[in-house]
Design a protein around this nucleic acid. Sequence first.
DNA 1: CCTCGTTGCCAATACGTTTTGGCACACACC
DNA 2: GGTGTGTGCCAAAACGTATTGGCAACGAGG
Lengths: 346, 346
Amino acid sequence: MAELTGEKDTGTASGNKPKGGLREVARLAGVSVTTASHALNGVGRVGADTRARVLAVAEEIGYRANPSARGLRRARTGLLGITHRTAIEGGITDIEYFVKIVNAATWTALSHGYSLVLVPPSLDGRPFDDLPLDGTIVIDPLTGDPLLTRLSQMGVPVVTTGRDLERRDEFSWVDNELSTCAIAALDHLESTGARRIALLTGSTGQSYDQDAKAAYLAWTKERGLPQITAEAAPGTDAAQAARELLDCAERPDALYVVLEKFGFAAAGVCRQLGLRIPEDVQVVVGADGEFARQADPRLTALDLHPEEIGREAAELLIRTVEKKVVGVERRLVAARLLERGSTRGA
Amino acid sequence: MAELTGEKDTGTASGNKPKGGLREVARLAGVSVTTASHALNGVGRVGADTRARVLAVAEEIGYRANPSARGLRRARTGLLGITHRTAIEGGITDIEYFVKIVNAATWTALSHGYSLVLVPPSLDGRPFDDLPLDGTIVIDPLTGDPLLTRLSQMGVPVVTTGRDLERRDEFSWVDNELSTCAIAALDHLESTGARRIALLTGSTGQSYDQDAKAAYLAWTKERGLPQITAEAAPGTDAAQAARELLDCAERPDALYVVLEKFGFAAAGVCRQLGLRIPEDVQVVVGADGEFARQADPRLTALDLHPEEIGREAAELLIRTVEKKVVGVERRLVAARLLERGSTRGA
DNA sequence: CCTCGTTGCCAATACGTTTTGGCACACACC
DNA sequence: GGTGTGTGCCAAAACGTATTGGCAACGAGG
């Protein structure tokens, strides 16, 4: 009982609760608040020793600028959004790729003094009306994405991950360099003996499908190999599409599946049809994840380095918000092929 | 060209950018800022017609209180955190259960004027030092969780989802009512003929494992059925644990697996051992998700209603932050059994 | 007529920071 | 000694809201 009241103010000096504000720092350092502010923000004219003293005091008492006050003054909230586009309202977004991007972006935002809020997927972007964001990351925008239009009208800076195919020059983006990475996967299949390689993509109009398809068409054309493609709508017909691809006279001897879950479904279809992986059909999926790792056999996959994508996107967005970059900027991230049991070793 | 400059200020009145602040609302309604503020927040003494007029004006010009200013004045940031506990630093968190909780909590926070930031998993909770949070949700805390200790010291209000088994009375929580729901699953197995039911749990010291185990032990004891249990550490030995359970003389005829992914792994082991599901071994998993739905056959699972959990947790946290609830409060959420192909129909 | 309680409203202040527009001093150059 | 050019620092004014402590008007009760 007595212990409780006694505990309350213990450790005030070293505690995590910011006690005094900037004023206190200034007082302890023997300068004005103006100078303290200047020293901490690295602006204005402050003597080197004075600055050092202020910084020392701030460190000492664990000073953190009150984000609300700072936001008020700077006309900024310190809040960044991140959202994933889905063709289905409220659709599942438990993709590992997505989660890893978010985590990386959160860390990056944090280290720059921003907070990242995860905006729930919604086709029209309603949630954005009530969020006071300084800027936002949009993962895998649709083609001609209405959300981007809306954000643009609202004047919210945007960085996309993947591109809106109709407006590739309007927004800054960070993207996978599929044009070369997809080819690495195809080369791998070819080098292990595949000659009839089929492509299975999604049909939601997101850029990764298109990129993979373009790479596939160019690559097969160059080699005079047959072009066998199929599309699966989001939902359950991935297995259906895979079955049509595999259950025919001139069966492919390899499958390049853009989405991880589709690849997983395709592997199930192979089993049902009595096709062995990788002996009868080799399988490569375009994004790594838990499904690819847990499948039997494990699926050879592209590691798209989502952490790097998230980090780059957040950094680009922050630079944009802070007006350190004027127009649009782009950044490509390379992927790496993880060879596993669904393809024959080279 | 001319069009561009013209477009810039179109729709100022109905636009999303807040034009004037509270002052503007007051001016248009012909009252003071004080009265406007009172009317909008439902406090103070304001005549009914005056209040209506203020609200109308605010609606009209699309007024939103500046969150920084409000935060500054109210000594609050409007930011809530949500984080998932993991025994492994930087561990994967792409569990559907988790994502659904986060989405629901985000919507709820939004509707109360808060923003939710997804705090990356980290054993020691470092990220929390740099986040100005009004409160936080901790999903599946560990036993004696150091993060909870730290948050408690920092004075950050906490609501957990699942419980810290060593401190069940110290924090408010929302939890699955496993004590009855696990039994529903066991009843189902029994009613379909199972007599040797084994339990496979995780070993990370999170409350759901313990709850499921307690329910299992009580239930089997009551019926005089054999008690066959195994634990799998986080990582890859779920298959190993399942194999030891299944590859023995007195083989179980049913498996209750607490974690979805472990159940998936166990199904793989069955296939390797030539055991048919559900003819030779029935399988129930304790949480639904994409793995359970995509497995072959699909796994009977408990739908834990993560949306409801997320919503309740957020509401409880907000009520706590706003001092509308004083001590701790608890809430149980029921689950529902989804019968699928891995168990025999009743 | 005076007092008292109630109702409806408002002026002024506080929240903690950043930024503007200086002031004072020092040094150098004619 | 004047004039110019930096340098180091500061007082005061924002930013937009919520809240405190009123003031005036009104009707009721003495």
